[in-house]
């Protein structure tokens, strides 16, 4: 692979030579090189952006960890190896010792292993909750943005009602409806809460596309309405929504933690999840804050990673920031 800066310099030199050699055509010169799409040119800039690189590094590390977790974790997260050291009165949470660098939780299970394996569950909750919210919002937002009129009014009033309920309260209500709380009720609750956010964003984005010059141009050209919606409006409207998705992923992980904290999370703690771990640490918070610290730190770092990546992508895709 060539160093991007040298190749940039070389292409510039070649360009100057070409310019110097002949006088330009009336329309000006067009470079010989094949075209670079919007996304490709955004990527050109992103891969030199340290903010994006940091975000991407955190995100990739997190996903990799989630994938290989069972093989990397030093112990089985469900087995209470240090259970015999737990004394409910004097020592409810065993401290670090050789082989168990972060100590164990109140049931004697290795904290480090639980954190590592927890990455996988956390990723599942984050990704599926976000995906659910995204798809729901996609359908509603497209309907509202593409048709306008009474469809728009109807969809948006429903969305407004959903938005008027505090999101956590809504998530709590939804997960309380489930007869047996599980990981999937958590995912579902968070997904539903995120639907109006996505729907509103997409709708606004679709509306601005609808009144944009290039959509007007497509109408003037006599392009079919369906093609205008799916080929011109939706792809251009999705940019900000996809970026929002990376931000929502972080929110979803935090929401999952909140639900677990309230006892509405996944009761099956053989499959640890960071939010759930944070929730379970509450009764020891005063004396053993490290139980809460580690999962919280993991959540913050991962959320930061997604947010940095999302924000820098948004910046790179913004046509105004180009050149």
């Amino acid at each position: 692979m060539t160093d991007p800066l040298t190749s940039y310099g070389q292409s510039r030199k070649a360009r100057i030579d070409a310019l110097a050699a002949t006088s330009v055509a009336e329309s000006g010169t067009v470079e010989e090189a094949p075209g670079l799409s919007l996304i490709a040119s955004a990527w050109q800039r992103l891969r030199r952006n340290p903010v994006f690189l940091l975000g991407a590094f955190i995100t990739v590390a997190f996903v990799l960890l989630a994938l290989v977790a069972p093989w990397v974790a030093p112990h089985d997260p469900a087995v209470g190896y240090l259970l015999d050291k737990v004394r409910p009165q004097s020592n409810p949470v065993p401290g670090p010792e050789p082989g168990f660098p972060l100590g164990a939780d109140s049931r004697g299970r290795d904290l480090l292993s639980r954190l590592i394996v927890g990455a996988r569950q956390t990723l599942i909750v984050g990704v599926f909750a976000t995906l659910g919210g995204f798809l729901g919002g996609l359908v509603l937002g497209t309907l509202a943005g593409a048709f306008g009129g009474w469809v728009d009014s109807l969809v948006m009033r429903i969305v407004d009602v959903m938005l008027s309920i505090p999101s956590l309260l809504l998530a709590v209500s939804i997960s309380a409806l489930a007869t047996r709380p599980s990981q999937w009720t958590v995912i579902l609750a968070i997904a539903i809460v995120q639907i109006p956010v996505f729907a509103r964003l997409l709708r606004g984005s679709m509306l601005s596309q609808r009144s944009s010059d290039h959509v007007l141009a497509a109408r003037a050209l006599g392009i079919k309405q369906s093609a205008i919606v799916f080929r011109h409006m939706l792809p251009n409207a999705l940019g900000p929504v996809i970026v929002q998705a990376t931000l929502v992923l972080a929110v979803a992980i935090i929401d999952a933690a909140a639900l677990s904290f309230l006892g509405l999370g996944n009761p099956d703690d053989r499959k640890p999840e960071w939010g759930q771990m944070l929730g379970q640490s509450q009764q020891y918070l005063a004396d053993y804050p490290h139980l809460a610290f580690w999962p919280a730190a993991c959540i913050i770092v991962v959320a930061l990673g997604f947010t940095l990546m999302g924000e820098s992508t948004r910046e790179a895709l913004d046509p105004k920031s180009r050149r």
Binding site: V24, E26, T29
Partner: peptide
């Protein structure tokens, strides 16, 4: 018209920037 656009400029370092459009 003046042909080309500002994108066709040469750097001033050892030329006239306007030369390609001149």
């Amino acid at each position: 018209p003046i042909p080309g656009s500002v994108a066709d400029n040469l750097p001033w370092d050892h030329a006239c920037a306007f030369a390609p459009r001149c």
